[in-house]
Amino acid sequence: MSEREQAYTVEHLVTGREALTKAKRIVVKVGTSTLTYANGRLNLNRIEAIVKQLADLANQGKEMILVSSGAVGAGLAPLGFKEKPKDIAMKQAAAAVGQGILLHMYEKLFREYGHTVGQILLTREDSTHRSRYINLRNTLFSLIELGVIPIINENDVVAIDEVKIGDNDTLSATVASIVEADLLIILSDIEGLYTANPQTEPTATLISEVSTITPHIYEIAGGAGTARGTGGMFTKIEAANIAVNSGVHMVIASGEHSDSIQVIARGEARGTHFVARHTKPHMRKRWMAFGSRLKGSVSVDAGCAKALLQNGSSLLPVGVTAVTGEFHEGETISILFEGEEIARGMVNFSSQDIEQIKGCNSHEVAGRLQVQSAHAEVIHRDNLVVLR
């Protein structure tokens, strides 16, 4: 067994899954391929099974939040489309019809099981603007306090590429981070993360647990989703990166099983479990790292990387080796070591200024920039989130 494979042993599974049984606040994301048949029409049996599981967990005192895809898919059949249209306006028209159909279905089923739901439609701007981020957080907490099950989807009717969150995997992880959830469950048409693509590699095996998201995890996350869905495994790993670094456990599992949500909540083996970090960053740091847009990156040397990862240090100019992209003071960037993202933070300098001061000592910064005084740090540790 290789070192990489040893990271996913069954011994980890026993202790890791126990944490899931204690999850109080749970976000469940359901993909389009789980909610619809191949012809685009809604899979009513599967939708009811999902609603029943969520309602039953809510009856146990759990706080449930549903992030649902399927608005565009639900609108295809009523509009006579045989597949998802490529034209943006037509796709948004399908979403406009489908959102009403989907919410009506959820509202009816949840009401039959004794629960009230509330719909929230989001765009990228709702998480990138700090004031909107806080307002969204307050609204979600209010709904949870009132015993309402929020149903969240990206607002595909008005969203364009510039304001789209990207996919509902990322959306669900962002929501889980915002509400400080204990567990995020992503249901799709796949059983979890495999050691290789199971469609092309017959010997590929399911990885039960991932304790650290390494570049290798991204490498083996190749492949795309179905024609009805948009999120392949790669987007789910990106979602896992947001979740675990926000202190949220995440499990990817197949939605084709009628009991996946309950099995996972009981701590039993199903899908792939991504283990959360022990500490949850402060709300402002979570927004900074996972809500705001990344504007660029800096690369650092080995000594700097060690100081950031092991000592919780600030990022000093002496450790910076390269700058990528154009950004301004106060924007959020990635910190890379050997091509791997190890942290994110809010910079004190523009990319142009960092180009001038990279590699120099802090007392030399003002002279390099020809100013009377300047920050000693490129990113202060109070504005920095470590991702490893």
Rank of each mutant, 00 (worst) to 15 (best):
T195C: 07
L187W: 12
P150L: 10
D169C: 05
K164G: 11
E180T: 09
L184M: 10
A181V: 05
D167N: 14
D169T: 08
T174G: 11
N155Q: 08
D169V: 05
D161R: 08
V148H: 05
G166H: 08
L140S: 10
I207A: 03
D189C: 04
V175C: 08
I144Q: 13
L140R: 11
L183T: 04
E154K: 03
E180W: 02
T195E: 12
I152C: 03
S172Q: 01
I152Y: 00
P198H: 06
V158I: 15
L140T: 07
S172L: 12
N138A: 12
G147D: 10
V175P: 00
V175S: 06
L193W: 02
E154Y: 06
N197G: 07
L171H: 01
A204M: 09
I186Q: 06
P215G: 09
E219S: 14
Q199D: 15
T139V: 03
L206D: 09
D182H: 08
I152K: 00
G192N: 08
N155I: 07
V148M: 11
T139L: 07
E191G: 07
A204W: 04
L184G: 04
D156F: 02
L171K: 00
S172P: 09
I149G: 01
I190Y: 06
I165W: 01
V175I: 15
S211R: 14
S177L: 05
L140K: 09
Y194F: 14
I152E: 00
D182P: 04
N155K: 05
T174F: 12
D169I: 06
I213P: 00
I217C: 05
G147L: 12
A159T: 09
V179P: 01
S172D: 05
D156Y: 02
S177D: 05
S177E: 02
A196L: 12
N138G: 02
T212Y: 13
S188P: 04
E219C: 02
T195V: 08
N138R: 15
K164N: 10
L184R: 02
I190R: 12
D161M: 01
L143Y: 12
E154S: 03
L146N: 13
Y194P: 04
G166P: 13
V148W: 05
L187C: 10
